[in-house]
Design a protein around this nucleic acid. Structure first.
Length: 261
DNA sequence: GCAGCTGTTAGTGG
DNA sequence: CCCACTAACAGCTG
């Protein structure tokens, strides 16, 4: 459930299900999910309740009535599951039972998810060197981030310390929409191209976020729907190609996204 | 059986 | 220090 739009959906899901209910039981799973002692989570959560939520990049912050926030990172396969029945879902790594007997589990088959306790979003952001949330980013901040960078634009977009929230899928989508080749060096981009990329960050993330929340499909004009080698370009400009950029599988259209020489 | 995958991190090397 | 690449994590899918 990982990039910004999917986490935004999880935030909405949490708001609709688990707020303002006293937690009466805490069951923890694999130690590797917990970024501090499990006993601390049990002590903090039991008898407590969630009062609201916030999101920064791919992190969800569940505000507690007392003692700060529970921070959730979904890894590649994490999600929240709210339910009324007895049996705990497979791969549950944290299960909270509320006083009305409803429950929520953080499930995470691949165990790449992480749970933290923190004082606040601001403290967590500072502590973990997280960049500006991709949907809160202003154009002048984006241009400032690009300044003096020498790497590929795709690598930069995925760097959570610079911009928080964009992962492999939507980095590809932003660059496809902006018609920029993913290996383009940041210092080779024109002002117009930088402006175009900035605009597409907003457009793509807002659109995908709404689609995730509404449960609707992405437009056929999106390369995300054609993430296959030799798929047809959504603009009918030939075949999609697959390469590696910054260690991640990258799909792009060599016709729409011309490489600079 | 094997490779690849929406995520992050540590280690290596240019 | 910046950047690219690899491996590792663990389960599922094709």
């Amino acid at each position: 459930m990982p990039e910004l739009p999917e986490v935004a959906y999880q935030k909405k899901y949490a708001n609709a299900t688990i707020l303002h209910k006293k937690i009466v039981k805490v069951e923890t799973g694999d130690k590797k999910i917990y970024q501090s002692a499990k006993s601390g989570f049990e002590e903090t959560l039991k008898g407590n309740q969630f009062t609201g939520s916030q999101r920064l990049g791919k992190y969800l912050f569940l505000n507690l009535e007392k003692n700060g926030v529970l921070v959730v990172h979904f890894g590649m396969t994490g999600e929240l599951e709210y339910y009324q029945h007895e049996e705990i879902p497979k791969y549950a790594q944290l299960t909270l039972t509320f006083e009305d007997h409803a429950r929520v589990s953080f499930t995470c088959p691949r165990k790449f998810g992480k749970l933290y306790l923190a004082e606040s979003l601001a403290e967590f952001q500072k502590e973990n060197n997280l960049g500006i949330d991709a949907l809160a980013l202003k154009k002048d901040e984006f241009l400032e981030i690009l300044k003096d960078k020498t790497g590929t634009i795709k690598g930069l977009l995925m760097n959570q310390k610079l911009i928080a929230g964009i992962g492999n899928l939507y980095a590809d989508e932003v660059l496809f929409q902006a018609k920029i080749h993913p290996v383009t060096k940041v210092d080779q981009l024109s002002e117009k191209e930088k402006a175009g990329i900035f605009k597409e960050i907003e457009k793509v993330l807002e659109l995908v976020k709404e689609a995730r929340i509404e449960g609707t499909k992405l437009p056929k004009t999106y390369i995300t729907t054609a993430r296959k080698k030799a798929a047809d370009c959504p603009r009918n400009n030939g075949k999609i190609e697959q390469i590696k950029v910054s260690g991640r599988t990258t799909y792009f259209c060599p016709t729409c996204q011309e490489e600079k020489t």
